Simulated scan of single mutants.
Amino acid sequence: MLAMSARTAIQLAALLVLCAVLMLLGLSIGSTGFSPWTDNDPTLRQILWDIRAPRSLGAWLAGALLALAGAVAQGLFRNPLADPYLLGCSAGASLGVAALNFLVGLSPPATALALRIGMTGAAFAGAVFAVVLSLILARGVEQSLRLLLAGVVVGVVLGSGAALLTLMNPDILRAMQAFMLGSTGYVGWSAVQVMAMAMVLCLLVSLGCSRALDALTLGEDTARSLGQRLTLIRLLLIGALSLATGAAVAQCGLIAFVGLVAPHLVRSWGPTTHGALLLLSPLTGGALLLAADIGARWVIAPQELPVGIITALLGGSYLLWLMHRRKSSLGGAR
């Protein structure tokens, strides 16, 4: 069991209340704006159960998965700017979706194969392929810097491949644009089940490695001297990072900044161990993405904004504010 301080317990309770409030808002806001649900309208009950409920819960789960992956990546690479897409997951998923759309209409067998795989399967397979390729190029997980560079190279190469397929078949441009901007509009109960299972598994693995992440903050030599099996720990954490990112991207597309900003927000509330960070970051990321999804539905209703645009605006604004605050504090220190 993880020891939990009083401050962490209060933060956890506050985040749970915030998530519950946002979930109620998500159930009350649809394409026509704010429409509270009642038990007297069977049509509204069907909309609530079949559309709003899985979408709201799926948005929360996707944000939680990305935030958990971001917290793991930042701890594993000891870099506060690390994000879930560090090992090329986003480029691999884009390539998978582009390849799937490119195959459709190419020939009857190719079309049948593409329909059998589906966009979700193609995105997840592409993300896993990118991570495996990064591990092969880095020759394992022993050297974090080499793995980091391999992920950057794989991301650039696979991203170029996705762009090339898109240029070769401009008809897939709209589908690719929707995937690149991110959307929770097509999330159903099957997607919720997949993300929930991935969340439970990744959270258990990450929490089991939280003490190793604490030791890594003191340096690799110190972590080894404390008895941490770093090779095994890195493999487990990279597996959890890849599964969390792949599951979220496969269901909702590429959603920017949630995985980067959520751990930063948690750290801004005060010093914390990785055990607490790995609990609080998913709740924060889930609340961020669910709030962005509610805004995407409400701002220009009955039309809808891609949720990735809102997360990019919010995340970019937060990072700019953080940079300005640190610059001001450094100027004041002088």
Rank of each mutant, 00 (worst) to 15 (best):
L147T: 05
D39Y: 11
G246M: 02
A191S: 15
V205A: 12
T245M: 12
G63M: 04
A256H: 01
L313A: 11
L265V: 13
N169P: 08
A127R: 07
G188M: 09
D221P: 01
S31F: 01
G26D: 09
M197G: 15
L12P: 00
V156W: 15
M180Q: 15
A62L: 14
A71T: 03
G185D: 08
L48Q: 06
R116H: 07
G70L: 10
G63A: 03
V187P: 11
C252W: 12
M168N: 05
R146D: 00
R334V: 09
I310L: 15
A196P: 00
I51F: 14
A98R: 06
S183M: 04
A301S: 14
P54Y: 10
G295R: 12
T166V: 12
A250L: 06
V249Y: 02
A198R: 10
G253S: 06
T217G: 09
L207I: 04
V157Q: 08
R139I: 02
D293W: 13
V128A: 15
L103Y: 03
D293L: 09
A123E: 03
L218V: 01
A110V: 04
A191G: 08
L322Q: 11
Q251F: 04
R78Y: 07
T231C: 10
L148F: 13
G246I: 06
T32V: 12
S28V: 04
G70C: 10
S210E: 09
H264G: 06
S183G: 01
L135V: 08
G92H: 03
S268E: 09
Q143R: 15
P302K: 09
G155T: 08
R7H: 12
G121F: 04
W321R: 04
L18S: 11
T272Q: 13
S328T: 12
V266N: 00
A99R: 12
G88T: 00
L57Y: 07
L241P: 00
P109Q: 10
R297Q: 09
F129G: 08
T231G: 13
G185P: 02
